[in-house]
Design a protein around this nucleic acid. Sequence first.
DNA 1: AGGCTGGTTCGACGTGTGTCAACATAGACT
DNA 2: AGTCTATGTTGACACACGTCGAACCAGCCT
Lengths: 124, 124
Amino acid sequence: MSNVQELPLLEPTGGQGVVPCCPPLTERPMSAPEAETAARMFKALGDPVRLRLFSAVASHEGGEACVCDISDVGVSQPTVSHHLKKLKEAGLLTSERRGTWVYYRVEPSVLAAMGQLLAMPAAA
Amino acid sequence: MSNVQELPLLEPTGGQGVVPCCPPLTERPMSAPEAETAARMFKALGDPVRLRLFSAVASHEGGEACVCDISDVGVSQPTVSHHLKKLKEAGLLTSERRGTWVYYRVEPSVLAAMGQLLAMPAAA
DNA sequence: AGGCTGGTTCGACGTGTGTCAACATAGACT
DNA sequence: AGTCTATGTTGACACACGTCGAACCAGCCT
């Protein structure tokens, strides 16, 4: 490939909080650019295999997992690698090589941003 | 058409609460069936046009909107109808014809279920 | 009835996506 | 060096998906 977009869907505030990419879905109609950005996240989780991989990493001890720990999802190893790459490109996971193994970990702030997107308006 | 799956992703408890289809992504690795179910929702929101349509309905007065109110998303009207149908099949919207117009409204419990899915474990 | 407007369905077309086998790369260990 | 294990990459293929125009259906309104 040539251009891997890494856009993170959030803007770090420097402090402990993050600014979600978009307001809650129920607050106002999303603009086209907002929707484009947010849809990338949802699409990344819109595949059963990716969802299982993501959940496996997210629920693993310390929020990180070696590929060998999570690659039992019923598809071939190249396919697992392919999906992990997609999740990485969507900004949901990060990867790091440590010796023989590669570890993936979740990007907690992005998860939070997605949660914000789906937040209900406090049951008005 | 022949088989429109309406599976609602939640099980009404009879009371005021609902049982989300799956535990939070971070709690434990999702099973294959759980992932299959949840991925359907994410996939439905994984398209920019659908996301805008959904947001338009969700943010509209009373949580419902006529198609004519939200069909300005840059694609042809048949395409709008197609996407609304997808959102309906995913259990995210319901539709009702009232005279000349067709109104779509959000399924709030499903939104809540998705929020649960992405809920963080209270910053352990 | 006949026409008009709002929506859906149909059929087709191009593009994107998930999957695998085969190959390539990175590090560990003889 | 050579080999073995763990991952990633490439190429190919079938299928799903988003999109549109055209045809169709449902209510209103003369």
